[in-house]
């Protein structure tokens, strides 16, 4: 049986544990991607969201075996991109980060949304972030920041 491996933030990594392990735990414990947070462990909060082949997934609901040979991107990889910088700037200007625990998942949800729809309206943004719970902000600042990033980062997505 082939060994279990996938591409994490651009580099191929091998996983020696069980294929049934949660991707969330593998990312945090094996590869020290601690930007990936566990908020509930049931797919109900989005704090552990990552991109798998460019698509948003809750890593608590993904078994490692399911990402065999796939591209997995966490904030550790995404933060090196120009798109991240556009989001970073907008989130900074609008103070859209409070406690910060939901932020990594929110940013990847925003990336997933903008890569599909580079000029979303407010309703689309709210929909795109609807799986990411934030208990601090009331969401306005986050929604406005995603909108601003889309405007000022025009052409990046």
């Amino acid at each position: 049986m082939a060994e279990l491996s996938f591409i994490l933030n651009g580099s191929r990594v091998r996983y020696d544990g069980s294929a049934a392990d949660r991707l969330l735990d593998a990312l945090r414990n094996e590869y020290h991607c601690t930007s990936v947070k566990c908020g509930c462990g049931e797919g109900e909060c989005g704090a552990c969201a990552v991109l798998i082949d460019g698509v948003l997934h809750n890593s608590c609901c993904v078994a490692v075996g399911a990402v065999q040979d796939a591209q997995v991107v966490t904030l550790e990889g995404y933060r090196e991109t120009a798109r991240f910088q556009a989001l970073d700037r907008a989130f900074a200007e609008l103070s859209a980060v409070q406690c910060g625990f939901c932020t990594p998942g929110i940013l990847l949800a925003a990336e997933a949304l903008l890569s599909r729809s580079p000029h979303p309206d407010e309703a689309e943004i709210r929909e795109g972030l609807s799986g990411n719970l934030c208990r601090c902000t009331g969401y306005n600042a986050i929604v406005n920041a995603v909108k601003r990033a889309a405007e000022e980062g025009d052409g990046l997505w």
Binding site: A19, G65, Q68
Partner: peptide
């Protein structure tokens, strides 16, 4: 691979 099969 432990505990899983990824069929081709």
């Amino acid at each position: 691979m432990v505990n899983g099969y990824v069929p081709a």
